Simulated assay, not measured.
Amino acid sequence: MHHKYFTTLPLASLASLAVATPYETREAAPGLIDDLLTGILNPMQQLIKDVLGGVKSGINDEISTKPLVCLTTLDSCCPWYDVSAELTKLFTETNGECNDNARAAVRFGFHDAGAWDKDSTFGGADGSLMMDFSEESRSENNGLQTVRTVLRSVQAKYKVGYADLAQYAHNHATITCPKGPRVRTFIGRKDATQANPTGKLPDVNDSADNLIALFQRKGFSAHDLAALVGAHATAKQRFVDTSAAGMPLDTTPGVWDVEFYNDTLNNNAGKNEKVFVLPSDKVLSVHPQVKDEWREFVGNQPHWNEDYAKAYIRMSLLGVQNLKDLKECTKTLPKKKNI
């Protein structure tokens, strides 16, 4: 709002990608991800570049069940089959829609990755919000404490990296919600060694111009921003107006659909009869750089899913320097659901 070495990489090195060392030093990574995707690229770097450039889709519907014998030394995605099964139980309502854990996991992925911009030498998608750096006590992270505890229990059980789990959980939650896209999902990030920087996340009362500028410093266009805020399709507000705590931001909060775009256009900022409209969403919906794309998403689920997936992949890789070492594990996510 939010990548040739694999052909020669030793199998033992692949195994190490599945479990990140919590305090392994992360190199400073100022500059946009695009600056890391120049020159001779390995297949993973090339894939990421192609997705961000629109050459390939950010959605991958490949699905695989966990093999009877799944060795991390042969496939670093192995533990993620079990993580996926656990998250499915944690994120799904009895009616098949996504629940409060899922919608919080979507927000958690944004807040962990989004605390970064092109001038940052640390931060981004590094798992710091899930780790012991006290970020959960920051006011902008109000409401994420419960899902943080849930995700920490998953991490403790399966010993996967914090940074990877924060983004994996976002992508899993997205597909747990009916109609959501299977966003390409990468593992192999390095975990944080310190708290993310402050002042890098959007404010619900900020102007559209400031929000666009904030996201541009992370590498997102106004078009990308229009797609990313659609994640509010499954959101509920709790702290903007405590008198309306729990009100959804669109009329179908258990479904990953485009009703949010129409609901925002047709209601005033604040509490309405059925939905709560964040001031930031309202001003973006009518801003000259955003409004045309916003209206394009109304009634067009495939368009939004594609644009969201592409933009969120960039979000999920903010501040990640070791792009060549990543592995795609989208195949471990659940299949997409329709109503």
Results as ranks from 00 to 15, higher is better:
residue 235 A to Y: 08
residue 235 A to S: 14
residue 235 A to D: 14
residue 236 K to A: 08
residue 236 K to S: 11
residue 236 K to W: 08
residue 236 K to V: 12
residue 237 Q to K: 06
residue 237 Q to L: 12
residue 237 Q to N: 07
residue 237 Q to C: 11
residue 238 R to C: 04
residue 239 F to C: 04
residue 239 F to G: 00
residue 240 V to M: 06
residue 240 V to C: 02
residue 240 V to I: 15
residue 240 V to E: 08
residue 240 V to N: 00
residue 240 V to K: 01
residue 241 D to G: 05
residue 241 D to T: 07
residue 241 D to L: 13
residue 242 T to S: 09
residue 242 T to H: 03
residue 242 T to P: 00
residue 242 T to M: 10
residue 242 T to Q: 12
residue 243 S to G: 15
residue 243 S to W: 11
residue 243 S to Q: 14
residue 243 S to V: 09
residue 243 S to M: 14
residue 244 A to G: 04
residue 244 A to D: 12
residue 245 A to E: 09
residue 245 A to K: 02
residue 245 A to C: 05
residue 245 A to D: 08
residue 246 G to T: 07
residue 246 G to W: 10
residue 246 G to I: 09
residue 246 G to A: 06
residue 247 M to L: 10
residue 247 M to I: 04
residue 248 P to D: 08
residue 249 L to W: 01
residue 249 L to N: 11
residue 249 L to H: 06
residue 249 L to T: 05
residue 249 L to C: 13
residue 249 L to K: 01
residue 249 L to E: 15
residue 249 L to D: 07
residue 250 D to S: 15
residue 250 D to P: 00
residue 250 D to G: 10
residue 250 D to E: 11
residue 250 D to I: 05
residue 251 T to L: 05
residue 251 T to S: 12
residue 251 T to R: 09
residue 251 T to I: 12
residue 252 T to Y: 09
residue 252 T to K: 04
residue 252 T to S: 13
residue 253 P to Y: 13
residue 253 P to H: 10
residue 254 G to Y: 07
residue 254 G to I: 09
residue 254 G to K: 02
residue 255 V to M: 11
residue 255 V to H: 03
residue 255 V to N: 02
residue 255 V to F: 10
residue 255 V to D: 05
residue 255 V to Y: 04
residue 256 W to D: 04
residue 256 W to K: 02
residue 257 D to K: 03
residue 257 D to A: 14
residue 257 D to Q: 07
residue 258 V to A: 03
residue 258 V to P: 00
residue 258 V to C: 04
residue 258 V to Y: 01
residue 258 V to E: 03
residue 259 E to L: 10
residue 259 E to V: 05
residue 260 F to N: 01
residue 260 F to P: 00
residue 260 F to D: 02
residue 260 F to W: 09
residue 261 Y to Q: 01
residue 261 Y to H: 02
residue 261 Y to V: 02
residue 262 N to F: 06
residue 262 N to Y: 08
residue 262 N to C: 03
residue 262 N to R: 14
residue 263 D to F: 02
residue 263 D to W: 01
residue 263 D to Y: 01
residue 263 D to S: 05
residue 263 D to M: 05
residue 263 D to I: 04
residue 263 D to V: 03
residue 263 D to T: 03
residue 264 T to P: 00
residue 264 T to G: 01
residue 264 T to Q: 02
residue 264 T to S: 04
residue 265 L to E: 03
residue 265 L to V: 04
residue 266 N to T: 15
residue 266 N to Q: 14
residue 266 N to Y: 11
residue 266 N to K: 12
residue 266 N to V: 07
residue 266 N to M: 14
residue 266 N to A: 13
residue 266 N to F: 09
residue 266 N to R: 10
residue 267 N to S: 13
residue 267 N to V: 13
residue 268 N to H: 13
residue 268 N to W: 09
residue 268 N to L: 15
residue 269 A to F: 09
residue 269 A to I: 07
residue 269 A to T: 04
residue 269 A to N: 04
residue 269 A to H: 03
residue 269 A to D: 06
residue 270 G to Y: 12
residue 270 G to S: 11
residue 270 G to I: 12
residue 270 G to A: 15
residue 270 G to L: 13
residue 271 K to H: 10
residue 271 K to A: 14
residue 271 K to V: 15
residue 271 K to C: 03
residue 272 N to Q: 12
residue 272 N to D: 10
residue 272 N to E: 12
residue 272 N to Y: 09
residue 273 E to W: 04
residue 273 E to Q: 10
residue 274 K to W: 03
residue 274 K to M: 06
residue 274 K to D: 09
residue 274 K to G: 00
